[in-house]
Design a protein around this nucleic acid. Structure first.
Length: 565
RNA sequence: AGCGAGGUGGGGAAGCUAGGUUAUCCCGGCGGGCUCAUAACCCGCAGAUCAGUGGUUCAAAUCCACUCCUCGCUACCA
């Protein structure tokens, strides 16, 4: 029993997350949160919508909505989608919430007081027509190296070279297409180099668990030397910078969104009427903090967030686990909103139930290199692993129980050696699955869970209780009993992976109360007698390849203008 | 360009950090079994010189070097 703060990267709210976004951070965090809860830990799982910054402003402009309206709409949409995906957040909040805004402002004043914030001027592209400073991404021009016409402000997509803002030829604003010019502006910076040694020591310490890429990538950045990070932007949509003389400026989104982990915890406890409860999670040293992210935002979690927390000198808990995944590719290509490559989490739910996606994504979770997600693999995994192997095992077991025992068992039957051995083997595998989750080997844990069902089918075929029943009733019943034990165990093991299916199964075969109250370890115990289980409908439905593809094409045909991918 | 990650039977994935019997799993192909079950399940067979070359070692998919290919990243895009 321990205390765990689980977090997943905050989705940027101008776009709907796609399957790739889902698997690495949100789903992974959910699986671990669910597992740890089953183990009886004190778990808090938080995240929220990251909704400030220029991209949201620009998207709002396109959608012809005020920024606030646009942000509200997207936040609500994403929040609802996560609920439908059964993501078990204790608090899914947003960076627009007042707790967050106040916390961030206080936080940076403290950092400034402690000497980690300084001012400096820089030149940034300015659009006179829109009256705004533009992040490099919103500036286009001709590449000074290769002459490519649509080079972005920071990098040329033609030759791949980085571009200094001054050298871009004839820069224009991508929002209104009028010429832009460089204008001097004062900004506030976070003095990251001052904390370099502490960060290095933190990364090298044994108390932190990092995925391999997270460790190597972070250490490399530290070796190269950390650079100051700019803290403010000349942008209206965001958290007003609290520094003296910084009127009209906001905090740079990344530098505030990572603090949302803290403010979301605060907000959760405020809502349940325990305004100081959050401190347990952030200051007591026996709390573990796990962060689930995609590989694209490793440095923000391994360098910047720890540095910010250290900079307060208040003793915040630093991340104890940073689990990053590689990317999910779609049919061999990178997910791309503009090219419509990939599947988004709202579309997915129109094609198949969330659990089908959850299972497939988790069994492909990119833990060692990018992984290719194919529609055919999805269909194959659902039809084979879930329906044929798992669903059918459950059905044959329950039907056998009905035939051999009249759906009722008064007491534990006497078991022969083979059956005892079989039960031992799946109970042992149950522990193995637990250790896999504890070392965050989610993909392996998921595969081992399905292996439980494969072994169940094998045992059934080997023992042929339907034959035995004619000659040796007692043995046929004891075999069926062992399989019932297995499928009840599976109901528990599926809880982190496919929660809806898990609950359906539990409702049909489980004890009184919820799975959560029952727990991971108690699943190893015998039933309460008398045991009564009635036949119930199949857990899964096979997918037809044709239907899935038709549905996807229908979604792709553009009949849904309101979708803002 | 620099940095990083990967290349495993027809397709998709493990294994590689701590080298060691016939390289694992799923799909597909072929043959068989069972017929309790959702035309499902189980067994067997075929198919990989683990990208290539060289090296270390008694022993390498696993360690080292180089080459080829693919992809990602390069922090003011979240």
């Amino acid at each position: 029993m321990a205390r765990w703060l689980i977090t997943s990267a905050w989705p940027y709210s101008s776009v709907t997350p796609h399957l790739g976004n889902m698997v690495g951070s949100i789903l992974s965090g959910d699986v671990i949160a669910r597992y740890l809860r089953l183990k009886g830990n004190d778990v808090l799982y938080v995240s929220g919508s990251d909704e400030h910054g220029t991209p949201v402003e620009v998207e709002a402009l396109k959608a012809n909505l005020s920024v606030k309206e646009f942000a509200d709409k997207n936040h609500n949409k994403i929040k609802t989608l996560f609920e439908r995906w059964k993501i078990s957040y204790d608090n899914y909040t947003r960076t627009e919430n007042p707790t967050h805004i106040n916390f961030v402002q206080d936080f940076y004043l403290k950092l400034q007081k402690n000497g980690y914030v300084y001012e400096s001027t820089e030149k940034v592209h300015y659009c006179d027509k829109d009256g705004r400073f533009l992040p490099d991404r919103f500036v286009e021009g001709e590449c000074p190296f290769c002459g490519f016409k649509n080079a972005r402000g920071d990098q040329c997509d033609g030759c791949g070279r980085p571009i200094e803002p001054e050298s871009l030829i004839s820069p224009i604003c991508v929002i209104c297409h009028s010429p832009v010019h460089l204008k001097e502006t004062k900004q506030w910076f976070f003095d990251l180099p001052k904390l370099e040694n502490e960060i290095k020591a933190y990364l090298m310490s044994k108390s932190i668990h990092l995925s391999d890429i997270a460790r190597s990538f972070s250490l490399k950045l530290v070796e190269e030397g950390l650079k100051p990070r700019s803290l403010t932007r000349d942008s209206k949509w965001g958290i007003p910078a609290p520094f003296e003389g910084a009127q009209g400026k906001t905090i740079y989104v990344w530098m505030e969104a990572v603090l949302g982990y803290v403010s979301a915890t605060m907000e959760y406890f405020k809502n349940i009427g325990d305004p100081t409860g959050w401190r347990k999670f952030w200051f007591e040293k026996d709390t573990k903090c796990a962060y689930f992210i995609g590989k694209d935002n490793i440095p923000f979690h391994t360098l910047i967030l720890p540095a910010l927390l250290l900079g307060t000198r208040e003793g915040y808990n630093l991340p104890s686990v940073v689990e990053s995944t590689d990317f999910l590719m779609f049919e061999g290509q990178k997910f791309s909103k503009s090219r419509r490559i990939g599947i988004w989490i709202d579309e997915a739910l129109e094609i198949a139930p969330a659990d089908y996606w959850r299972y497939t994504l988790l069994s492909l979770r990119p833990e060692g290199g990018d992984v290719n997600f194919k529609l055919d693999s999805f269909i194959e995994k659902v039809n084979n692993d879930l329906n044929n192997v798992l669903g059918n095992l459950v059905n044959r077991t329950v039907v056998s129980f009905e035939k051999f025992c009249g759906s009722r068992l008064r007491a534990k039957p006497r078991l022969d050696g083979d059956t005892e051995k079989f039960i031992d083997s799946f109970l042992m595998r149950h522990d193995e699955i637990g250790s896999l989750y504890e070392s965050f080997k989610i993909q392996h844990a998921v595969k081992t869970t399905i292996l439980q069902a494969v072994e169940g089918n094998r045992f059934l075929n080997e023992k042929e209780p339907w034959k035995l029943f004619k000659t040796d009733r007692e043995r046929a019943i004891s075999i069926t009993y062992s399989l019932l034990r297995l499928i009840r165990l599976l109901a528990i093991e599926l809880y982190p992976i496919t929660p809806a299916i898990s609950e359906t199964l539990w409702d049909n075969i489980g004890e009184q109360g919820t799975i959560l109250s029952y727990g991971w370890d108690k699943a190893k115990e015998d039933f309460n007698y008398p045991l009564q289980i009635q036949r119930f409908p199949p857990l899964f439905k096979k997918l037809s390849r044709e239907e899935v593809i038709n549905k996807l094409e229908e979604l792709r045909s553009g009949g849904r203008a309101e979708w803002t991918h």
